[in-house]
Design a protein around this nucleic acid. Sequence first.
DNA 1: CATTATGCAGAATGCAAGGG
DNA 2: CCCTTGCATTCTGCATAATG
Length: 267
Amino acid sequence: MLKHTFLHIPRIGKLTEQKFWQAGIQTWDDALQVPNYAKLGIPELLIKSFLADSYLALEQHNISFFSKLLPSLETWRLYPKFSHNLSLRVAYLDIETSGVNSYLDNITVIGVYDGTVVKQYVNGQNLMAFRDDIEEFDLLVTFNGKVFDVPVLQAAIPKLHMPKAHIDLRYVLKQINLKGGLKSIERQTGFAREQDELGQLDGYDAVLLWRLHRRGDPRALPTLLRYNAEDVVGLKPLLELACNQLTKVLPLDYAQYSILSRINSRA
DNA sequence: CATTATGCAGAATGCAAGGG
DNA sequence: CCCTTGCATTCTGCATAATG
């Protein structure tokens, strides 16, 4: 998807990019072979120098080059290319706190899913290890993390270096008419959790579970951790669903970029 | 060459919505 | 429950293209 992207070039916005695609300029390679730029309204030199930089950034796995230039609604474009051909480390992240008054409340649990394994950090146990661990990742995926998780983490943990690229699914999913909270979206997409007691929990229950845990209930923390784990693991199929759907509506030969066939078999 | 239309970037503003 | 943020919207200014 990235090699179809022209949006990151100055003076090229959504409309100009669409014109490129419709004119048959679908990839960076196409753009370099265009004989006559007169009709496109953008200086040829600007395009070619930017594309040279783009090829270089891709070769060097420099994801922050693109993430800085892409509008945040389009950050999803980082995922298919980088996750397929390059060894990009993706961190799906979700935190639980003792309440919603952001800066007064404490972080209770941090969950990080790397696509294979969930690692969790618990207040009073290993919360500070998160600071070192998160630096191993290139791309962050959250739901509403731009508003909630990342600011809260940064306020709580000094000298925290979060990944430079961040896909916030809240805004990405909104484009395909998936609005509301994470639980609601999981229901709408058929990715809802199993119908056991865990599926009934919401964020406020996470607050209550933490209080129970502090009062000495031995069953509270394991339940909270399972809840948090399901949250982070659930982010991945949602991201891949969004990538597939958003790619589909573009005037591109998209078939080869479909990420997951697995998704559809679960619904 | 002058004029006009177009569309992008950037700034400013107000508000909706999601987190636990 | 409350707060923060980024988004959407609007406006301005600029650069380019098209026209004759």
